[in-house]
């Protein structure tokens, strides 16, 4: 810094101020540019998808290319089932892990767990898909909704762990100490005192996890595989919303493209609603605890 001060002159100062102003404006511009694709994508999906949406779209099965009508009832049910399996597997493990990580923040295993969840969240979902394929599809010798649900569980796990852990840390230590001082065992303290206080965090984590899992197409290609018929058997291949979009989009038929956009609208509304409500929940919780960020 010293050389600048020593060589200061009116022109130099003016130039430095100008540089500052230009660069600061550029950062604002970068922010504006980044929001353009978001609005473009959402706007285009709504505009193109909306005309193809009607009640039949939600209740009918897909029709072959060129046949009008038809819907995505199978994919809606399929997404519900696979994400449901994912939640059932991931939620209990994730919440327990979050409790462990929050209460053993500085122990070696605690650090390893936080590191491990970070690493899992960085593993590409297609690699998770291969893992589930080797784990479930190969031994069973057929694609299944179960395999799809297991992949989604792996994908949701780190999201739920991290959000829950953060919220557990926000619960004032006095609540926990009070409960222990009254003679409650550790598990009862966690279950009856800390968990209710951090419930928003768990819900937020679940919502973000569902939002992420509901949009995963890549690992579904060789786990759930897709299915043009209605299926509720978890041992059979099943269709999901993102996979349906993928199949319709890369097919060479214009009417399938229209259905891809309509399905994309359904999916994006679902994902955005989940994300916005998760955000609202966190903000509400933070305000309640008097933590304004």
């Amino acid at each position: 810094m010293t050389p600048i001060a020593l060589r200061s002159s009116p022109t130099r100062t003016r130039r430095r101020k100008a540089t500052s102003a230009v660069m600061l404006t550029l950062t604002g511009l970068a922010t504006a540019v980044a929001i353009v694709p978001l609005i473009w994508i959402i706007g285009y999906v709504v505009q193109t998808g909306l005309p193809a949406l009607n009640a039949d779209f939600f209740t009918q099965l897909p029709t072959p290319a060129g046949v009008s009508g038809g819907g995505i009832a199978n994919a809606l049910v399929g997404s519900l089932i696979t994400v449901g399996i994912g939640i059932i597997i991931a939620a209990p493990i994730a919440v327990l892990t979050a409790f462990y990580a929050a209460s053993h923040a500085n122990s070696p295993l605690g650090l390893a767990v936080r590191f491990g969840t970070d690493v899992i969240s960085g593993v590409p979902s297609i690699v998770m898909g291969i893992f589930a394929y080797a784990l479930i599809v190969l031994p069973q010798r057929h694609f299944s909704a179960l395999a799809g649900g297991v992949v989604l569980a792996f994908i949701m796990l780190p999201i739920i762990v991290r959000t829950t852990e953060e919220m557990i840390r926000l619960v004032p230590g006095t609540l926990r100490e009070g409960s222990l001082a009254l003679g409650a065992p550790e598990w009862k303290t966690s279950w009856r005192v800390i968990l209710p206080a951090a419930l928003n965090g768990v819900l937020t984590g679940l919502m973000l996890g569902i939002a992420r899992a509901a949009g995963e197409a890549a690992p579904m290609l060789f786990t759930a595989f897709g299915n043009p018929f209605m299926n509720t058997d978890i041992n059979q291949p099943i269709a999901t919303l993102p996979h349906t979009i993928f199949v319709y989009a890369i097919a060479p038929y214009a009417d399938w493209h229209a259905k891809a956009w309509a399905t994309a609208l359904v999916l994006i509304v679902l994902v955005l609603v989940l994300n916005v409500s998760a955000r609202v929940l966190v903000a509400w919780r933070a305000r309640k605890l008097g933590l304004s960020r």
Partner: peptide
């Protein structure tokens, strides 16, 4: 709000990015 919009960009499923990328 702007921070939230940027984070929403991460929430859009990648298959929708692909669809938009391919046709738009």
């Amino acid at each position: 709000p702007v921070g939230f919009l940027i984070e929403l960009l991460a929430a859009v499923p990648s298959v929708i990015y692909g669809l938009w990328g391919l046709f738009v």
